[in-house]
Amino acid sequence: MTDALLEVRGLEAWYGESHILHGMDFDVRRGEVVTLLGRNGAGKTTTMKSVMGVVRQRRGAIRFNGAETIGLSSNRIARMGIAWCPEERGIFASLNVRENLELPPVVRKGGMTTAQVLDLFPRLAERATSQGTKLSGGEQQMLAIARILRTGAELLLLDEPTEGLAPVIVRQIGAIIRDLQAKGFTILLVEQNFRFAATVATRHYVVEHGRVIDCLAREDLEAGGEKLKSYLGV
């Protein structure tokens, strides 16, 4: 028995004929912020989609709160308390900001209320009636994170929330992630930007060619992170 909220063992995944994940192993403990780091195409997004059940050709074990989810469809997995903020953000053009925010159904008790979410993201309250895709990139990212906080999900999967955003917005997102951790959320974060990752996460899994090749603690990054730089080729 571990204290892991999410336990992934020997996860393999395919897109049609292409074998993308070759046995991913990692854990996310309750209340932790953990990142998956890795180069472009390493399989980080595919891992998140597999956990979410969006990639359906998958094998291995994905246990959430001790329950196996590998055979479930994505709507069932969401109802167990996992919420996903996709890399492309997925803001709906035919919905205004408020509708986007309130779209994901509440799956469990204990989520934030809309008012609490808007406190955290005041900009979204100002733009409530704008078309979702008329927001700036940063605002859309905020909206994509904001809308999964109401659902009562315990585990948030955030796929590159800082991608392509200005440094000031990146800092805001960092503050929000720390705030969410303090509120009790457990977060699995995909990042390319390891300097940002180092400021929010306690542990980092390095992904390469569809496998976890190393796990680094926060101290390893603070101590210069030479090993990580060689992994990421930066």
């Binding site: 979410m52 969006v54 709507n75 969401a78 919420a83 779209l103 159904p105 799956v107």
Partner: peptide
């Protein structure tokens, strides 16, 4: 209706929010 509009745009994501699309 919001579910319907959203699923028209991106059924995969709406399903991943827990809706039985």
């Amino acid at each position: 209706g919001a579910y319907l509009r959203a699923a028209t745009e991106n059924p995969t994501l709406v399903r991943a929010f827990g809706i039985n699309v």
